Amino acid sequence: MKTTFLAMLCVTVLPLSSPIQAESTSELSYENYIHSDKRIKCLYGYAADKTGDHAAAIAIFEDCIKRWEDVYSMIWLAQIYESGVGVEKNLAYSTALMKRGAYTQDAAGYASIARYHYGVALYEGIGTTQDRTEAVKWLRQAASEQVIEAEQYLKSKGID
């Protein structure tokens, strides 16, 4: 009885599309961060992607890359294109983004992660021509920068 009364109260008192509701939803939309000039928005791209707003995530990441050559955004955008969730899968573009990140120097250390992923792509021939010599170079560099996954990958392939 209590649940039924509460449900009826909500239906009769709160309209489904009130101006207040629509306005507050749009203010909280990830789309509002797409054109922001605040770098913190790059983190919102991750949240947008994880909550299913892939279009906003892609737009945020693309803008972060354009404005700041943001390696964090390159990595996440590459993963979106590698998985094909919310966008058509594009392994060549995904690998190109990882390569771009691998050549970037960033204070946060994301370039090391990009080096690892780019090395794996080269080693496996994912989205690029397979080049194991070049792959080992990138993987060793990532391992020297404390990317444990790079060290483990090299060991799994029997490479010291």
Rank of each mutant, 00 (worst) to 15 (best):
L6K: 08
A7V: 09
A7S: 12
A7Y: 06
M8D: 06
C10L: 13
C10A: 10
V13T: 13
L16F: 13
L16R: 05
L16V: 12
S18W: 09
P19C: 02
I20D: 14
I20K: 10
A22L: 15
E23T: 15
L28G: 15
S29G: 10
Y30G: 12
N32R: 15
I34P: 03
S36G: 05
C42W: 04
C42G: 07
L43G: 12
L43Y: 15
Y44M: 15
Y44K: 15
G45W: 11
Y46I: 12
A47L: 14
A47R: 06
A47P: 01
D49C: 13
D49K: 14
T51E: 11
G52R: 12
G52Y: 08
D53Y: 10
H54A: 13
A55R: 08
A57K: 02
A57V: 09
I58M: 07
I58T: 09
A59W: 07
I60Y: 11
I60T: 11
D63G: 04
D63I: 01
I65Q: 06
K66I: 08
R67I: 03
D70W: 05
D70H: 10
D70Q: 10
V71S: 06
Y72H: 06
M74N: 00
I75R: 03
I75Q: 05
L77R: 01
A78S: 14
Q79S: 10
I80M: 13
I80G: 02
Y81M: 01
E82D: 14
G84Y: 11
G84A: 11
G84Q: 09
G84P: 04
G84R: 10
V85G: 01
V85D: 12
V87A: 13
E88C: 02
K89N: 02
K89Q: 14
K89E: 14
A92P: 00
S94I: 05
S94C: 03
S94G: 11
T95N: 10
M98W: 13
M98H: 12
M98T: 04
K99V: 00
K99A: 07
G101W: 01
G101C: 02
A102I: 01
A102Q: 06
A102N: 04
Y103H: 05
T104W: 03
T104S: 13
D106F: 04
A108I: 09
A108K: 10
G109F: 03
Y110D: 12
A111M: 03
S112A: 14
I113L: 07
I113R: 05
I113A: 02
A114R: 00
G119E: 06
A121Y: 01
Y123Q: 00
E124M: 06
E124R: 02
G125T: 00
I126Q: 03
G127Y: 03
G127Q: 01
T128M: 03
T128G: 02
R132H: 05
T133V: 11
A135Y: 04
K137W: 06
K137N: 08
W138L: 07
W138S: 08
L139D: 01
R140G: 08
